[in-house]
């Protein structure tokens, strides 16, 4: 509810709205991939420290989400999908979101440093900076390649989970980072193909808006190829066992097939974008399954 004189909310932000600022749905993937990085590491740490590391990564993701919503409140107001968020809907002061985001971010980095090690804390701090500044402020409003570099922000959690246990970063966590990094463009471009009009209204230079559907579909196929290579690589490199090898071959073959179907689709009407919707839905299942099998393979079979 707004104050007519100052255009400010008249009541303190509710706990539910503060929670919504953290983008809890995005957080589930962050927590899951971080947990996979933590469990796939060759050493173990006490449960309470592992829990704290995951908590810090989740809180940092929440901080990034809050800072993103603070900066993008005006853009969010123009899109149907986001105009009900606490800031564009006028239920919260912008300053509250800024303080909440900075506070959560600082808290998560300090606690990570105290509970685990400073390498994990440093990567965590960098991941918040990367999402809130490099992606949200610099790239997203300027370049249609925003998703490519921005994808790195979502790829840090397994790296941080691994670093929290071992205190270093080796080839497997880097491959886990690469898988998410290369998965992000086909995942988001598949979505942006059938919600293009929404991004158009907000003036965000998403690839379908700037380069058209055909170029976007081509890019979906192009980015899928190195993603498939990175996803299968842990097996021939001897970092995982044959269980992951077999599962990754199947999962990646399906992903590639769906991406090729997107590449061959010529539809301009979102209602006829069945292949894009299928790829978007499958891409979420793919990442969860791939990381779950990689972790189980490392824990029990490798």
């Amino acid at each position: 509810m707004q104050n007519a004189a100052t255009d400010m909310p008249r009541y303190p932000a509710s706990a539910a709205d503060l929670f919504a600022l953290t983008k809890p749905r995005v957080m589930s993937l962050v927590v899951f991939t971080a947990l996979c990085g933590l469990l796939a590491a060759p050493e173990t740490i006490p449960t309470v420290l592992g829990f704290t590391a995951i908590l810090c990564i989740a809180v940092a993701a929440g901080a990034s989400g809050a800072l993103n919503q603070w900066y993008e409140a005006d853009v969010d107001a123009k899109m149907k999908r986001t105009r009900g968020r606490p800031l564009p809907a006028g239920r919260m002061e912008k300053r509250t979101a800024l303080h909440f985001g900075v506070g959560l971010g600082a808290f998560s980095v300090l606690l990570m440093g105290l509970a685990t090690n400073y390498l994990a804390a440093a990567i965590l701090a960098f991941s918040i900076f990367f999402y809130a500044v490099v992606y949200t402020v610099w790239l997203k409003p300027r370049t249609p390649q925003n998703i490519v570099i921005g994808g790195a922000a979502g790829a840090f959690p397994p790296l941080i989970g691994w670093a929290a246990v071992t205190g270093d970063v080796t080839l497997l966590p880097v491959l886990m980072f690469l898988i998410i990094f290369l998965w992000t463009p086909p995942h988001f471009w598949a979505l942006s193909l059938f919600v293009k009009t929404d991004y158009d209204a907000a003036g965000i230079p998403m690839l379908p808006v700037v380069a058209g559907n055909a170029a976007t579909r081509r890019q979906v196929v192009i980015y899928t190829l190195p993603m498939v290579a990175a996803a299968i690589a842990p097996w021939p490199l001897g970092l995982t066992g044959p269980v992951y090898g077999a599962a990754s071959l199947v999962l990646n073959a399906v992903f590639l097939w769906l991406a090729i179907r997107v590449g061959m689709n010529k539809a301009e009407d979102p209602a006829a974008m069945g292949p894009e919707k299928k790829l978007f839905g499958y891409s979420i299942l793919y990442l969860f399954a791939l990381f779950a099998i990689l972790t189980l393979d490392r824990m029990f079979f490798a």
Binding site: P46, V48, L49, T52, L55, L114
Partner: peptide, 11 residues
């Protein structure tokens, strides 16, 4: 949580 972290670190 801080109590738990302290005990774990001592261990």
């Amino acid at each position: 949580l801080v109590f738990g972290i302290t005990i774990a670190k001592m261990g």
